[in-house]
Design a protein around this nucleic acid. Structure first.
Length: 287
DNA sequence: GATGACCTGTGA
DNA sequence: TCACAGGTCATC
């Protein structure tokens, strides 16, 4: 369920609470959670001694940069014997970038604090077994990835370019080029992270509902006016739902259930699979 | 571009 | 007991 808005909330949390605190240790109890060949040992080697310097976001990917220099930590694996030359990473101006994918039930906790409202479709009970990746700071605090469903992931130096333009930076000419070049269902194009990054199932349904566009329509069938409406609806959806507190605060959300009625004109909503995802839309005003 | 698998908590 | 939620990836 974390879509762009939830990841942005997590980013803000990291930025506010976790930067510039020396890392004492890293725990990755769930090996499965580490992706692209990353191992607990490699993480323990790469991060202790560094600080988190920047919290960025591209689409649904949370990126946390680390410092190049490593502070001395008594007993930490990074401490070398006297006279040893520093490791090559120590000479670089920046350390590795931590890539956090929240998957569908992941949250970032810092010193026990989480951003935003509890997630849907995910338990909100506490259970330390769900902490898949933990950064322990030298000051005793910690950053933890909590993910009951294990669909999230952690990697180092993720390939950021596999993601397209961030949905918050979506300009009309780019949207136009993306949409006009595909015969796929409009919804599938909007959810394709390599073209537009950040929109998930709920945000797309809400934006299309606001734009009055049928999710199943071939993307290329949109005329110029509809493209403008779509861009505005995406921007409005992100702004309004962002203020309200997340992807699940949309007007359509209350009706996302079998037999739900369109909040705009009271007609029974259509429920079907579009672009591989459960999709709700209004047969009356989404054309 | 569509489909199914991954994974597990939830609610019927 | 089982369908379902959904981001992402491999496979068709």
């Amino acid at each position: 369920m974390p879509e762009l808005l939830e990841v942005e909330a997590a980013r803000t949390l990291v930025e506010a609470l976790a930067l510039n605190r020396p890392i004492a240790a890293v725990r990755a109890p769930d090996t499965w959670y580490l992706k692209r060949g990353l191992t607990p040992r490699a993480v323990r080697k790469a991060l202790p001694g560094r600080r988190l310097t920047t919290a960025r976001r591209r689409g649904k990917l949370l990126l946390v940069d680390t410092s190049g220099e490593r502070s001395e930590l008594a007993g930490a694996a990074s401490v070398r014997g006297a006279g040893n030359p520093p490791r090559s990473e120590c000479d670089q101006s920046a350390g590795p970038t931590i890539g956090l994918h929240l998957g569908m039930s992941g949250r970032v906790l810092i010193d026990g604090e989480a951003a935003g409202d509890p997630l849907l479709y995910a338990s909100n009970r506490e259970n330390v077994q769900w902490h898949r990746f933990i950064i322990e700071f030298a000051d005793g605090g910690r950053l933890a990835m909590r993910d009951p469903r294990r669909l999230g992931a952690v990697e180092l130096d993720p390939d950021e370019d596999r993601l397209g333009v961030d949905a918050l930076e979506l300009a009309l000419p780019y949207l136009r080029s993306v949409v006009s070049r595909s015969r796929a269902p409009l919804k599938a194009v909007l959810m394709d992270q390599s073209r537009i990054a950040g929109l998930g199932n709920l945000l797309v349904d809400e934006a299309l509902w606001r734009a009055g566009l049928d999710p199943a329509r071939p993307a290329e069938s949109l005329d110029a006016g509809e493209q403008v409406r779509l861009r505005r609806a995406i921007a409005t959806t992100l702004r309004v739902l962002g203020r309200r507190g997340g992807s699940h605060t949309g007007d359509l959300m209350v009706a996302r259930l079998p037999g739900g009625l369109c909040p705009k004109d009271g007609v029974a909503l259509l429920r079907r699979t579009v672009g591989g995802r459960t999709t709700y839309s209004c047969p009356r005003h989404q054309l």
